[in-house]
Amino acid sequence: MTEYKLVVVGAGGVGKSALTIQLIQNHFVDEYDPTIEDSYRKQVVIDGETCLLDILDTAGQEEYSAMRDQYMRTGEGFLCVFAINNTKSFEDIHHYREQIKRVKDSEDVPMVLVGNKCDLPSRTVDTKQAQDLARSYGIPFIETSAKTRQGVDDAFYTLVREIRKHKEKMSKDGKKKKKKSKTKCVIM
């Protein structure tokens, strides 16, 4: 069974824990209790493949930012979460993405942009803004509501699919490099 290491990042209060708990335990946590770091595991079937999701729910508070490099190193894919009623959390996505790329030393890291709290009427981040940002990053965008469960499975499952595509691409690139290195030079 394939294991996928997913990391949920975003500013404090955007609903990272609520999304994760909704996926794992099928219930909505409405009281806000700032996370330092929590880890969850769940076995699911995605596109006919049974897999184990190892999900790291991270601290959004700035005082825990020193811990970010460590979990970013171990993560295979990242859910970059903002709240649709919090423009600052949307603007912060850029910083999370840049930090992930720096730590992973790669421009090509599996990510999904997630606009959470889409059940709320007080939207300050337009869907088109988020779609445009995701398009500019070359990553999928999904709106979710941890409260109603809308888009929750889709967000995590899409990230797994992005990781699969990335692994497939990397193995193809690896095979191309191996083929090239088999060419021999004969000096007579």
Rank of each mutant, 00 (worst) to 15 (best):
Y64P: 09
Y64W: 14
Y64V: 15
S65F: 04
S65T: 09
A66F: 07
A66D: 07
M67L: 05
M67V: 06
R68K: 08
R68S: 15
D69R: 03
D69V: 01
D69Q: 04
Q70C: 02
Q70Y: 01
Y71F: 10
Y71N: 11
M72F: 14
M72N: 10
M72E: 04
M72R: 02
M72H: 10
R73L: 06
R73M: 08
R73I: 06
T74Q: 15
T74N: 10
T74M: 14
T74R: 06
T74V: 14
G75T: 06
G75P: 10
G75I: 14
E76Q: 06
E76L: 08
E76S: 07
E76D: 14
E76Y: 13
G77A: 13
G77F: 13
G77L: 08
G77K: 00
G77V: 12
G77I: 06
F78S: 01
F78D: 01
C80T: 03
V81I: 11
V81L: 11
F82Y: 11
A83E: 15
I84C: 13
I84T: 14
I84L: 13
N86C: 06
N86W: 02
K88L: 09
K88A: 07
F90G: 05
H95Y: 11
Y96R: 02
Y96G: 03
R97L: 15
R97G: 06
E98F: 01
E98K: 04
E98P: 01
E98C: 04
I100V: 07
K101Y: 04
K101G: 07
R102F: 05
R102V: 06
R102C: 06
V103P: 01
V103Y: 04
K104G: 06
D105P: 06
S106T: 10
E107T: 11
E107V: 13
D108W: 04
D108F: 09
V109N: 01
V109Y: 08
V109D: 01
V109M: 07
V109A: 06
V109L: 05
P110D: 01
M111E: 00
M111L: 07
V112S: 00
V112N: 00
L113H: 02
L113W: 10
L113I: 13
V114P: 01
V114C: 06
V114K: 02
G115W: 05
G115A: 13
N116W: 01
C118G: 10
C118R: 06
C118M: 11
D119Y: 04
D119W: 02
L120V: 10
P121Q: 12
P121T: 12
P121M: 13
P121K: 10
P121R: 10
P121V: 10
S122F: 07
S122N: 12
R123Q: 13
R123P: 11
R123L: 09
T124H: 11
T124L: 09
T124D: 13
V125L: 10
V125W: 10
V125I: 10
V125E: 12
D126I: 07
D126K: 08
D126A: 08
